[in-house]
Amino acid sequence: MKKILVTGGSGMVGRNLLSHKESEKFDIIAPSHGVLDLTIKRDVDEYLADEMPDFIIHCAGLVGGIQANLKYPLEFLMENLDMGCNLLMSARKVGIKNVLALGSNCMYPKNIEEGLTEEMILKGELEESNEGYALAKITISKLCKIISNENKDYNYKMIVPCSLYGKWDKFSPESSHLIPAIIKKLNDARVNNEVNVEIWGDGLARREIMYAEDLADFIYFSLDRFNELPEIMNVGLGKDYSINELYSAVAKVVGYKGGFFHNLDRPVGMRKKLLNIKQLESFGWQSGTSLEQGLKLTNDFYLSNI
C-alpha cells in the first residue's frame, strides 16, 4: 500500500481526496497546519525525512476569490511560493521521487480567446487581479520541471485545473470563489425575498468550472499512470459558461425567483480562461459530473453544513 502525503488536507481539494472511495487503496497522511507548517523549511525537512511518502500531492495554498486576491497580493505571492518551494526542495533533498502539485488557470496570460494550451504559460501578461498567486504557481511549475530534468529518477509534475467548486468550499464573501459566492448570495436572497440580485460586471465573462470531487477522481486515476502523465497538464471540461448563465443555473437549483442587475463598476477578472484539454483527452480521463448535478450537491452541502 503506497503512502501518500496530501498537503492542504483540510481544504476543498484535500477533503475531496480524503473522502473519495479510491483513498482506501492508499496509506494517506494529511497533517494539519499545526502539525506541519509548510512555510518553515526546517520543519518540512524533518517531517518528510521521518515519513518518507511514496507520493506527495500538494494541494495546500492560500486561496480566495477576486476580493481576497486584490486585497492581499503580497500574501498570495509569498505564502504560496514559500510552501511550494519548501516542499519541493525538501522532497528532493530526502529522495522522494514522485510529486504532483496543483496549479491554477490564472497562470495563463489574460485576454486569450482560444483554449489555453500548456505552452502558453509565460507567453503573455497576467491578469492583475490574481498576479501574485499566478506568479507563485508558475514558479512552482518551473521548479518541478528543473528538478525532474536534473535527475530523471524524479517525477515532479503539475496539473492545472479549471475553476473548482463543491463540498467543503469556502462560502464567506471575503474568501469565496464564484460558485460558492453565488450559492450563498442567492440563498440569502431567497430567504429575504429580495427582488433583484447584483452581478459584478456585465455577466458576459466566461468561466470553466468543474466539481471538485471529479478532480479528486482524476488525481487517483493519474497515480496509476504517473510515468505517462505529462510534466504539466490541464484538467478541465473543455467548455465554459457565462457568468449570467451560471447565475441562472444556480437560481434554478436554489429556488430563487427574482431578477438580476449588473454593476459595471465592480471587477470581473479575466474575461475568458477556457482550458485546451487535448492532452487530458489523450490521457484517457473526463469529468463525470454535470453542472446541474454539481450545483445541487454543492447547494445541499451549503444548506446542511454552512
Rank of each mutant, 00 (worst) to 15 (best):
L5K: 00
V6H: 04
G11Q: 04
G11D: 01
R15A: 07
K21G: 05
E22I: 03
E22T: 02
I40S: 03
D45H: 14
Y47M: 04
L48D: 01
P53Q: 00
F55A: 07
L70A: 01
K71G: 12
P73T: 09
L74K: 14
L74N: 10
F76H: 06
E79M: 12
E79W: 10
L81F: 13
N86T: 06
A91M: 07
R92F: 13
G95F: 05
I96N: 00
K97I: 09
L102M: 11
M107L: 07
P109I: 08
E113M: 15
L116D: 02
M120Q: 10
G132H: 00
G132Q: 05
Y133I: 03
K142I: 08
N149C: 15
K152A: 00
Y156H: 02
I159F: 05
V160K: 01
P161N: 09
P161C: 05
K170L: 14
S175F: 13
H177A: 14
H177V: 13
I182V: 11
N187H: 10
R190W: 02
E194C: 07
V197T: 10
G201W: 06
M210F: 11
M210Y: 01
Y211W: 11
E213K: 11
L215Y: 11
D217P: 03
D224C: 11
E231Q: 15
Y241S: 12
E245W: 13
K252E: 15
K257T: 13
G258S: 09
G259M: 09
R266M: 15
V268W: 14
V268D: 02
M270W: 12
L275D: 00
E281L: 15
G284Q: 11
L291T: 00
G294Q: 04
K296G: 08
N299T: 05
